[in-house]
């Protein structure tokens, strides 16, 4: 970059920057999921947290509804199984997203 001749130098820089960005974007497409959580251990931790927290939320909802409606313990039992199902479902979605279909990976994985 020549001093004093800023505009052309900046144009040049801009061009090189956009080239570099394009190649980085292309590289990023090749990866899947949340980068860094792909390591086996990180993924396992993530799956277990997902499973346990979903189940815990289910149980808590059941317990709270039971207290409110006075139906102990039936809603707790029901919500336990619903929570377990929801946990299994989110784990299933996460693993399916790990297995493949690129673009929707993170989207299908964690949400919906």
């Amino acid at each position: 970059m020549a001093k004093g001749e800023r505009p052309p130098a900046l144009d040049e820089l801009e061009r090189r920057l956009s080239e570099a960005r394009a190649s980085m974007d292309a590289k990023a497409r090749g990866r899947s999921g949340l980068p860094g959580e792909q390591g086996g251990y990180g993924f396992a931790v993530r799956l277990s947290i997902e499973l346990v927290s979903t189940l815990a939320v289910g149980v808590f909802i059941g317990w709270a509804l039971d207290r409110w409606l006075g139906t102990t313990p039936w809603l707790l039992v029901m919500c336990f199984f619903l929570g377990a199902a929801a946990g299994a479902l989110s784990v299933y979605r996460l693993t399916r997203s790990m297995a493949g279909d690129q673009d929707d990976v993170t989207r299908n994985g964690t949400a919906k």
Partner: peptide, 17 residues
């Protein structure tokens, strides 16, 4: 209900992680 539970579990798993 399953979807509602997994929706409500989002903040919990986010915080827990």
């Amino acid at each position: 209900p399953i979807e509602i539970i997994s929706f409500l579990a989002r903040p919990v798993s986010l915080a827990l992680r």
